[in-house]
Amino acid sequence: MALDVKKGLGGVKLPVIPWGKLSKLSKAHKLLIAVAILGALWGCFVWFLYMPQTEKITKMSGDLDAAKTKLARLKNVEKNLRAFKKKYRDTELKFKQALKLLPDKHEIPALLSSISNLGAQSGLEFLLFQPQKEVNRNFYAEIPLKIEVTGPYHNVATFFDKVSRLSRIVNIGDVKMTEAKAAKTKSDTVILKTSCTATTYKFIEAKEQPEKGKKRKRKPSKK
């Protein structure tokens, strides 16, 4: 069965182009019609193809810029995190090194014995060697030690110098010097009575630290 072009497809009538009349038009009219057809085709291309693709490209460009911004922010966070981790490791190392200078409770007797021996080695006579009550300072405690010795000034200075060279921290303070009775020896050396406070420190382990906010339970009074 032959297709009737005039009836069109599916029985729908298509407009019949009057080719005979078009051939009789002037060149100017033909040019205008050609321009109109090209304009219509260009408009269809822009509307149906170019504009949707442009919008898609614009959206993808915005998404790309947002992704670049997020990536730059994450890189900055990563950089800061690395710097923070390094700073934390350095601080932790310094803290551990500082703890080595603080004896624990098991080392205190040996440290006090060392201080006493240094005094004897320096030619001093001890009149008083008395540990005082500990003073808690968060993660460490101060251990004051009252000391009174007699001996020449040079010997006292030697003793203080030896104490300062101990591997553990020991601070000498509250130094008072007075001339002792029977002050002069046969060599006319002046004997001084020196009193001072030697303060050492110990590290307090977590289980030893007093818990804040907890009140001691009062024992019920007996009536």
Rank of each mutant, 00 (worst) to 15 (best):
222 K>E: 07
204 I>C: 07
84 F>N: 15
179 E>H: 00
148 E>Y: 07
176 K>W: 08
181 K>Y: 09
1 M>D: 15
167 S>C: 11
12 V>N: 06
219 K>L: 10
106 H>Y: 15
38 L>H: 08
51 M>Y: 08
210 P>L: 02
2 A>S: 10
197 T>P: 00
132 Q>P: 08
223 K>H: 08
143 I>S: 02
164 S>N: 06
37 I>K: 08
15 P>L: 15
10 G>N: 04
79 K>Y: 03
24 K>E: 09
215 K>E: 12
9 L>V: 07
82 R>N: 12
113 S>C: 08
107 E>D: 06
90 D>H: 05
38 L>F: 11
109 P>M: 00
173 G>L: 07
65 D>Y: 12
47 W>K: 15
208 E>V: 04
78 E>C: 12
147 I>R: 01
37 I>W: 11
77 V>E: 11
120 A>E: 03
215 K>G: 12
160 F>Q: 00
125 E>T: 11
118 L>W: 00
23 S>T: 04
39 G>P: 04
125 E>I: 15
144 P>Y: 05
187 S>R: 04
36 A>R: 15
104 D>E: 06
52 P>Q: 01
102 L>F: 07
90 D>W: 02
85 K>E: 15
189 T>W: 06
3 L>N: 09
201 Y>S: 00
148 E>S: 13
211 E>C: 10
77 V>P: 08
101 L>M: 10
69 T>P: 07
6 K>H: 14
137 R>E: 10
171 N>P: 03
